[in-house]
Amino acid sequence: MLSRIADSLFWIARYMERAEDTARILDVNYHMLLEQPVTSYRLRWDQLVTITGEQERFFQCYQEADARNVFEFLAFRRDNPNSIVECVSNVRENARTIRDRISREMWEEVNGLYHTVSRFLPEEEMNVGPHRFCNLIKFGSHRLHGVSDDTLPHDEGWQFLQAGRALERAEMTARIVDLEYQKLVEGPETAGAPDNHQWMAVLLSVAAYESYRRQYHSRIEPQRVAELLILHPLHPRSIRFNVGVVQQSLRAISAGGSSAGPEAYANEAERLTGKLHESLMYDRIEDIFSRGLHRFLVDLQKTCRAIGEQIARTYFYYGVVA
């Protein structure tokens, strides 16, 4: 498989996941925030932008973080490289360069989503609220994964899709948990019962609300939410689950790449992933909290970025002429 094609597949999955996660965060929080007391209004809208890491760019575009501006910025702004429409455009641009290597069904799904998104009128959507738009993105993403799984051979290329999606999701989940938890410690007056509301939003935004209810049968407690989102072995949105997927995919890609035996790692990306997965498997949530959740999540995001860089270095870039 050409390196360029592997690179594109990896980024198709990452951008689609980024668009979906942003749509989820926007959709859930938008409606939750409308029910919040006015005093904390600005602060909270602000934080939605922080999750995507684009505060600086946001305040270059807008004076104030309110519902309208945040929605427009996260969903429609073409000058925000992480806005939903830009992510969808990037998915499609990447798909276009390798459309001979993906299935016709997959291409038509991506292309159809792009054209549909392009036809949305931001002004009109801002009046009706983000639900319709966000829903379209979520289901577009689900369809793309379904179509890919059902029409592509599950070969190396497909593994790059898996790795890209799981890595993006792990990092995004880490950001969401980190931000919500910071709010909890920073604002003591918001701690306690009312925050149920906020943590419920977190669970909803990563599609883990029903799982939580079934697992814990209790009111929503931050520590348990964190446990579910970070350490759950089987929930497809937990960090541990996704790091596991990255690890499996990288092993499938390098199959036989290491001569040191089946458990050995073939490259730096695999070593970092394996090490991270190991700690997620054996750490308890109490251990993580006692060492500091924020610190843990910041380090985890750094490791995710390093894994991404190492994947690129191993498989995508030919720096040296043969």
């Binding site: 498989m1 050409l2 390196s3 360029r4 592997a6 890609i253 498989y315 995508f316 002429v321 043969a322």
Partner: peptide
């Protein structure tokens, strides 16, 4: 395979493509 110029490299008068392996 659909390739662009940057996917190919010539060494010793032989053409190669850059793959993940």
């Amino acid at each position: 395979e659909l390739v662009e110029g940057r996917d190919l490299i010539v060494d010793g008068e032989v053409v190669y493509m850059k793959t993940i392996h």
